[in-house]
Design a protein around this nucleic acid. Sequence first.
DNA 1: AAGCTCCCGAAATCG
DNA 2: TCGGGAGCTT
Length: 821
Amino acid sequence: MTTLFDPDNTPARQAPPGGPIIVDGERPDGHAGGYQSPLLEGLNPQQREAVEYRGPALLIIAGAGSGKTSVLTRRIASLLEAREAWPSQILAITFTNKAAAEMRDRVKAILGQGADGMWISTFHSSCVRILRREAENAGLSASFSIYDSADTKVTLKRIIKSLDADTLGFTPGNASAKISKLKNELADVDSYSRNANMSDPQEVMFVEIFRQYTQRLRAANALDFDDLIGETVYLFRAFPRVAALYRRRFRHILVDEYQDTNHAQYSLVRELTRPVEPELADEMEATGVHVRNLRDATGGIPGASLTVVGDSDQSIYAFRGADTRNITEFERDFPGTRVILLEQNYRSTQNILSAANAVIGHNFDRTDKKLWSAGGDGEKIVGFTAYSGHDEAQFVADEIEVLHSAGMAYRDMAVFYRTNAQTRALEEILVRSAVPYRVVGGTKFYERAEIKDALAYLIAVANPNDELALRRILNTPKRGIGPATETGLASFADANQISFRQAMRDSASLGLGPKVTGAILTLATLLDEAALSIDPANPAGQANVSELLTFLLDGSGLLTLLRNSRDPQDEARAENIEELVAQTKDFNKENPDSGLVDFLTQVSLVAAADDLDDASGTVSLMTLHTAKGLEYEAVFLTGVEEGLLPHQMSAHEPGGPAEERRLFYVGITRARQRLYLSLAMTRAQFGDINVAMPSRYLQEIPVGLIDWKQSPGMANSRGGTQPRALNARRDGFGGGFAGRGEPRALPPAPKPKTEWTNRVSEVRDNGDLTLAAGDRIRHVDFGDGRVNQVTGDGTKRIAHVQFDTAGARKLLIKVAPIEKI
DNA sequence: AAGCTCCCGAAATCG
DNA sequence: TCGGGAGCTT
C-alpha cells in the first residue's frame, strides 16, 4: 500500500552521488574549459546548447531531420552522467512506444546502464501507470479496462439504438468524435450541459448520449483513450497530495512532438510542472517522504524543469485535438523559457529540402524557418503521372526494383499514402512483382475480431464489471445464447441492481430453457475458476498470463472450433490466436513480475507505428501519419491528387488544407536521398473509377526540382514511361490539366479503364505452372521474354525474366499474367 | 438460435 | 468492393 501513497520514495532519499541536484540555474561548478564531454561530440552549436542548457523551461524548435532525437537522448544522458538527476526523476514523453523504446535504448547505449527507473513512455502509458496506482482516488478499481475506439463505438451504438437517436442523425462515429473532442478539451457531461442550448432537441439528445456513455463506462470500470489523460488531470486537481508526490518525483520532464499535444495533454504537463507548496512539503516530510534536499528558499519544491521539442510545421493531428498554440504560446505559458532553433538538416538532400521549404512556405501564419543541408543537391525529385492506381503501383514497383538492383536495400525504401484504402492496389502489384514489403499499421493485429474475442475473455477475468467484454464472449464461440437471452440477462441485472456477471451466475432464476441456462452457467463458472487461478489469495498457486489464456481457450473451445472449421479463413484466425498465446509467453518471460492487467495494458496501448521492425528486409508501406518521425533513403509519396492530398474531407474544416500541406511536408522530409511523387489520373473508389486531378501542392514545388518521367499533361494515353514533352510547360504541368481556374474538361476519356486496369484486378492463378531457366514466356504487358533463373519455392517461386523490350523483371510465377511459349 | 442471402452504405488521418 | 444488418428458412 505504500506505493499508493508514494510513487517512488527511495531514489530521492539523497542527492545522487557526486553532486547536489540542480533544479534551476547553472551548475555551481560551472563548465570550466578544457574538458568536453563526449556527449557533445559531433553536435552543432545549437544542438550543443540544447543538450547543455539548464533552466526551468526549454523550447527546442526542431525542423525535420535536425537531429532532435539525438539531442533529447544526449540531454537526458547528460543529466544523468553529470549526476544532476536520478533516473527516477526523469519523465520523457514520446508519441509512440517505438519512439520511447528507441530513446531508452539510446540513453542506455550512451550510459551503459543506469537508465532503470526512468519513465520514458507515451502520454497514455504514463497516465495508465499513474491511474492504476491511484485508482482508488479516481474512483476506479486498479484493474480498470481501457476501451479502444471500436469499444467506444459499440457502446455508443447500443446507447443510440436504445434512445432512437439515429433519427436525429446520430451515429456511433459522429457521437464518438464529438465526445472525444470534448474530452480533449477537458469537458465532461456536466460542464458541457451547463452551456448547452437545451432548446435544441439535438443538443438534448447529445447530452443524454454523453451522459449514458459516461455512466456505462463508470459501471464497467472502464476508461476510453481520452479519459486516460483527462482523468489523470482531474485526479491531480482534486487531490493535491497525490499531485505533490509526482511533482516531487519528476524533476525533469521532456516532451517530444509537442506540437501534437492537445489541451488535456498540455494541462497534464502543466500540472506536473507546478511547484509543491511549502505546507505540502512539510506534510510530506512528516509522513516520511524525503524532500529536504529538493526544497528551495521558500520551503516548497520548485516546479520541474520542462523541455519540449516540436515543430509546428509538422503538426498533423489537429483532427484529434492537437493545438499548435501549445507550442506557439509556450514562452508565454512558461516564463523564463529559452528557445533554441535547430534548422540544419542532416537527413535530406538540398533538392528535397528546397521542395519541402517551398511547399510549407505556402502556409501563412507560421514563423519562417528554412531547412538547409550541407550535403549537396542530390538527385532531382522524380514525378510520375499514372493512368490508374494500378499503373501508379507498377511505377512504384518498377522503381523499387531499379533502386534495389543499384544496391539499395528494401528496408531503406518506403511507400506513403494518405488513406489506408490505397494499399490494395499497391499490394497487388508488389506481390505480383515479388517485391518484399510490409504494411505498417494497417489492420492491426489486436483489432482482429478473433484476437478481440480472446482478449475479451482475459478482460472479463481481470475486470468482472466489464459488461462489454462479457457480452462479447457470451455467444463466442456459439453456445446458443442469442440476442433475446442477452437482453434478458441485461435487464435482469438492471432490475436487481447486480452486475451482468452476477446475473449470469444467477441465470437459473430467469426461467430460460435448460440448455441456454446450462450454457450461461458453464461460462460463468469458467470465468470464476479463471479468476480464482490468478487470485493472490489462492493458495493453489498463481497462473501466469499464458496459462490463464490457455485455460480460457480450452474451457471455451474458441481455438478448437476455429481449427476444426471448414471455413478456410478460420485457419488464419486460429493461427492468430496461437500467435497471441505465443505473445503471452514472451510477455511472461520478459516481464516475470507482471500480471494480467499489465499485459492487457500493454496490448491496449500499442500504436500503428509500434509494429515497425527495422530488421526485416522489406519495403515499408504506411500512411503519411504513421510516417512521422521516420526516415528512409528513398520515399515514394503516392496519390498526390486533389481529393486525396488534400483529402476531400479536409476541405470544409477550418485549417484543413493547411494541415494537409503539413502532412505533405512531413512526407517529403522523410526522404534522405531519393523522393518520388506520383499520382494517378483515375482511381478506383467505392467500386468504380473516379477521375482525379493533380494536387495543388505540386504546383508549389519549383519546376526545376522535379524531373517528370510522365507529367500530368502528357499522361493521356498508355505510353509507357517515355517522356515525350518533359516539363513542356513552365508551370511544370503539361497542357490542359487542372490549369489555373480555367474550366477544365475532364482529361481525355480514360483509356486505362480498358483491358489493363481490369485485368490487373483479377485474381490470376497459374496453378502449378513450372518455369526453368531458358524458357520463353509471354507477359500481357511486357511482351515476350526469356527466363534467366527461378528462385523461391512453392507458391512463392519467382521468375527472373529478361524481356525483349521491357527489360529485366522479377515475377511471382503463380499470379503473374504470363504464359509459356 | 443459426445460417443463409440480399441489399445498402461506406472509408481520413490515431493513442 | 466489402462488411454489417435485415429478413428469411431450417
